[in-house]
């Protein structure tokens, strides 16, 4: 049924395009009429931010290679280096009873079912349906969606389930005395194999311990701007870290860092 559905959706692509046109035109017009001073101002901010981010990225890459070296010493498996693809929301409304959005990348761009989708702040959801030029993404807040997470502070693992748009996620099956504090950051744990490990998901918003209940009622506020973000990132299936080091745009010197003190990376690589 899935290929049939995918084919029919591809066939009906023009309808989605026409339906998305009015809101797209409005967006484009408002971007067009943005004032010159505003743009200059934005540009300055972005330039400054990019400088800062670049510096941080350099440090991150050193840390990443160091981390991998330590992992290889421990004999544990390598983190995969993920590649990402930028996609844009198609401005149509889907089924009102579920939190689904349509994005403008599909089979022809290498999107597959179950891929993780992020925005600049954190995980947004995963791909549930792919057609030739578009795919459907289920958001974290959909009640049928659950995501395995871990608390950054202490590595405590849990599952966060959606409760509908505008509602926080909830952590299920957490004992009343579990070590969770308001403000803790949750990231993906990588268990289950759907989501890559280590991407931020949300922060703990509220912890309730209803009397007489076996489990705590813990709310998670998603970090991703689920109803604002227009550009989002698709995480493509990863390559081995070894192959991507050479391709890195900044900080070419890490290859030397790895090569100097670490054992050859390929030897300890286990699948």
């Amino acid at each position: 049924m899935v290929p049939v559905r995918s084919a029919v959706t591809s066939l009906l692509h023009p309808i989605h395009v026409i339906a998305a046109a009015p809101s797209k035109i409005i967006q484009d017009l408002s971007a067009y009429f943005e004032s010159r001073t505003q743009l200059q101002h934005d540009n300055e901010i972005f330039a400054a931010k990019q400088l800062l981010d670049n510096a941080r990225l350099l440090k991150l890459q050193t840390l990443e290679s160091e981390n991998n070296r330590l992992r290889s010493l421990l004999g544990s498996s390598f983190r995969l280096q993920e590649r990402v693809l930028v996609a844009e929301l198609v401005t149509v409304d889907l089924d009102p009873f579920s939190q689904w959005v349509l994005i403008d990348k599909g089979l022809s761009d290498g999107v597959t079912i179950n891929q993780a989708v992020l925005d600049a702040q954190g995980i947004m959801g995963q791909v549930v349906d792919v057609s030739e030029w578009t795919s459907t993404v289920v958001l974290l807040t959909d009640p049928s969606h659950a995501i395995p997470v871990q608390v950054n502070r202490n590595g405590l693992r849990a599952v966060a389930v959606g409760q509908g748009l505008g509602q926080p996620l909830k952590l299920i099956h957490m004992p009343q005395n579990s070590d969770v504090e308001i403000g803790d950051i949750l990231s993906t744990s990588g268990l289950g194999g759907r989501f890559p490990e280590g991407y931020p998901v949300g922060t703990i918003g509220n912890i309730g311990g209803p009397e007489g209940e076996p489990f705590a009622a813990i709310e998670v506020l998603p970090l991703a701007k689920l109803n604002i973000s227009r550009e989002l990132l698709l995480v493509l299936p990863g390559e081995k870290i070894t192959s991507s080091i050479g391709a890195k745009p900044v900080g070419e010197d890490e290859a030397a860092i790895i090569g100097s003190s670490a054992p050859p990376v390929e030897e300890t690589l286990d699948e």
Partner: peptide, 19 residues
């Protein structure tokens, strides 16, 4: 076709219940 397009047209979130 027109009806289908109107069903797909994006509305602000608060308005979706009025479609």
């Amino acid at each position: 076709l027109l009806a289908i397009l109107l069903m797909l047209l994006q509305l602000p979130e608060a308005w979706q219940m009025f479609r």
